[in-house]
């Protein structure tokens, strides 16, 4: 189902992930989160931006375990746990945060 962001159309796959990562703009995350009834805060954006940086550098979406560890290192030990990440993204950091960030589904995430 394509999504509409400020008059522009973005193609997605059958699970709602952006078809082309290079199409992404912040409005994509905003529109996707609204569909999930979620208000994006600075804490959400920290994770979304971090995921995009990770993909830019390594060409993969990190596994949840890898993301959790990295978040702890970058944003503080209190945030480096799945409770924090699931608090922000109730559907899971992989299924929700990666999708908002325009990344493909993480390798090994079924």
């Amino acid at each position: 189902m394509p999504i509409e962001v400020e008059g522009k159309t973005f193609e997605t796959d059958e699970e709602g992930y952006l078809a082309n990562i290079n199409d992404w703009e912040p409005g994509v995350a905003t529109v996707m989160s609204k569909e999930d009834d979620l208000e994006l805060t600075d804490e959400h954006w920290d994770i979304i931006n971090y995921l995009r940086e990770y993909y830019e550098e390594y060409q993969i979406a990190p596994a949840v375990r890898v993301l959790t560890k990295a978040v702890g290192k970058k944003f503080g030990k209190d945030k480096g746990n799945s409770k924090y990440l699931y608090g922000l993204f109730p559907y899971g950091p992989a299924k929700q945060a990666c999708r908002y960030a325009g990344l493909p589904k993480p390798t090994g995430c079924v």
């Binding site: 550098e57 060409q59 990190p62």
Partner: peptide
């Protein structure tokens, strides 16, 4: 083709 050589650098994280 996709250049996957940067991905090897992520192995340490894994």
């Amino acid at each position: 083709m996709k250049n996957f050589s940067p991905t090897y650098a992520a192995l340490g994280d894994y």
